[in-house]
Design a protein around this nucleic acid. Sequence first.
DNA 1: GCCAACGTTGGC
DNA 2: GCCAACGTTGGC
Length: 159
Amino acid sequence: MRYWLMKSEPDDCSIDDLAAMPGQTVAWYGVRNYQARNFMMRQMRPGDRLFFYHSSCPQPGIAGIAEVASSAYPDETQFDPASRFYDPKATREQPRWFNVDVKFVAKTRLVGLPELREHAALENMRVLAKGNRLSITPVDPDEWTYIVEQLLERKTDEF
DNA sequence: GCCAACGTTGGC
DNA sequence: GCCAACGTTGGC
């Protein structure tokens, strides 16, 4: 099992929105970056856990925990001319963009970006790297455990 | 709203 | 295949 961090703009889909979805599950559509797409296609497996991160908002940071609930399949929005994610170069026969489903696990207190930066144990996290823009990043198991146990004061096996 | 970082595009 | 121009992300 792998661990991830996935960014979502809370205006678009917050952790509360995810919890309110039918089945508490959402298709993670709209990824238009090959590196992030490749993580979903090649490395994500159902059951992987992720930090649900709020970005582009007043308080960016980890807002909850979710799990990967499907393998990667073609992102429907690439075929929809009305969608802001429409890609005219994508076809049903040769889709370009894929997504997984993501399912709610827990809402946590908000662990803000400044707080994450305070911890030496987390200094190599991709999301903290200067200039990082990638919306999906792998999280090291040690980093996962540190955040869950030290910052959230929960047991890793709770999630 | 600013701007640094970085990915993509397209002319050559 | 290079690289300048451009667009987007996302923290501040």
